[in-house]
Amino acid sequence: MMSSPHHRIHRRSDFQRTLSLGVRTRTRDLDVHRLTPAQRWPDRSRSELALGGGPWLGMIVSKKVGNSVVRHRVARRIRAAFASAILPSEAQAYYVVRARPSSALRSSNELADQLRKALAPR
Results as ranks from 00 to 15, higher is better:
residue 2 M to V: 00
residue 2 M to D: 08
residue 3 S to T: 07
residue 4 S to K: 10
residue 4 S to E: 11
residue 6 H to T: 02
residue 6 H to C: 07
residue 8 R to N: 05
residue 8 R to C: 10
residue 9 I to W: 00
residue 10 H to G: 07
residue 10 H to Q: 12
residue 11 R to V: 06
residue 12 R to Y: 12
residue 12 R to A: 15
residue 13 S to D: 07
residue 14 D to M: 06
residue 14 D to W: 05
residue 16 Q to V: 12
residue 17 R to T: 14
residue 17 R to P: 13
residue 17 R to N: 11
residue 22 G to F: 01
residue 24 R to I: 01
residue 25 T to V: 15
residue 25 T to G: 02
residue 25 T to N: 00
residue 26 R to Y: 11
residue 26 R to E: 14
residue 27 T to M: 00
residue 28 R to L: 12
residue 29 D to W: 12
residue 29 D to V: 11
residue 30 L to M: 06
residue 30 L to Q: 10
residue 31 D to R: 12
residue 31 D to M: 14
residue 33 H to F: 15
residue 33 H to R: 00
residue 34 R to P: 00
residue 34 R to E: 02
residue 34 R to A: 01
residue 40 R to L: 06
residue 43 D to K: 13
residue 43 D to C: 05
residue 44 R to L: 12
residue 45 S to Q: 04
residue 45 S to W: 04
residue 45 S to G: 15
residue 46 R to Y: 01
residue 47 S to Q: 04
residue 48 E to D: 08
residue 48 E to C: 01
residue 48 E to P: 00
residue 49 L to P: 02
residue 49 L to D: 10
residue 49 L to A: 11
residue 50 A to F: 05
residue 50 A to G: 08
residue 50 A to N: 08
residue 50 A to L: 13
residue 51 L to P: 10
residue 51 L to W: 05
residue 51 L to R: 15
residue 52 G to V: 09
residue 52 G to Q: 07
residue 53 G to H: 04
residue 54 G to C: 04
residue 54 G to T: 09
residue 55 P to S: 05
residue 55 P to C: 04
residue 55 P to M: 04
residue 56 W to E: 01
residue 57 L to T: 00
residue 57 L to S: 04
residue 58 G to A: 06
residue 59 M to V: 07
residue 60 I to Y: 07
residue 61 V to E: 10
residue 63 K to M: 03
residue 63 K to S: 04
residue 64 K to D: 13
residue 67 N to I: 09
residue 68 S to K: 09
residue 68 S to M: 10
residue 71 R to H: 01
residue 72 H to Y: 14
residue 73 R to G: 07
residue 74 V to E: 03
residue 75 A to D: 14
residue 76 R to A: 12
residue 76 R to H: 13
residue 77 R to K: 05
residue 78 I to A: 05
residue 80 A to V: 11
residue 81 A to P: 12
residue 82 F to V: 10
residue 83 A to R: 15
residue 84 S to F: 06
residue 84 S to L: 11
residue 86 I to N: 03
residue 87 L to Y: 10
residue 87 L to S: 04
residue 88 P to G: 02
residue 88 P to T: 02
residue 89 S to H: 09
residue 89 S to F: 08
residue 91 A to L: 08
residue 92 Q to V: 10
residue 93 A to Q: 00
residue 95 Y to P: 04
residue 96 V to C: 13
residue 96 V to G: 09
residue 99 A to R: 15
residue 101 P to W: 01
residue 102 S to M: 11
residue 103 S to Q: 08
residue 103 S to E: 06
residue 105 L to V: 07
residue 107 S to T: 15
residue 107 S to R: 09
residue 108 S to I: 11
residue 109 N to K: 14
residue 110 E to M: 07
residue 112 A to D: 08
residue 114 Q to F: 13
residue 114 Q to C: 12
residue 114 Q to W: 14
residue 115 L to I: 09
residue 115 L to N: 02
residue 115 L to F: 06
residue 115 L to Q: 02
residue 116 R to W: 13
residue 116 R to E: 10
residue 116 R to S: 09
residue 117 K to G: 12
residue 117 K to S: 10
residue 117 K to Y: 14
residue 118 A to P: 05
residue 118 A to L: 05
residue 118 A to V: 03
residue 121 P to V: 03
residue 121 P to E: 14
residue 122 R to T: 14
residue 122 R to S: 15
residue 122 R to M: 06
residue 122 R to C: 11
residue 122 R to N: 07
residue 122 R to E: 15
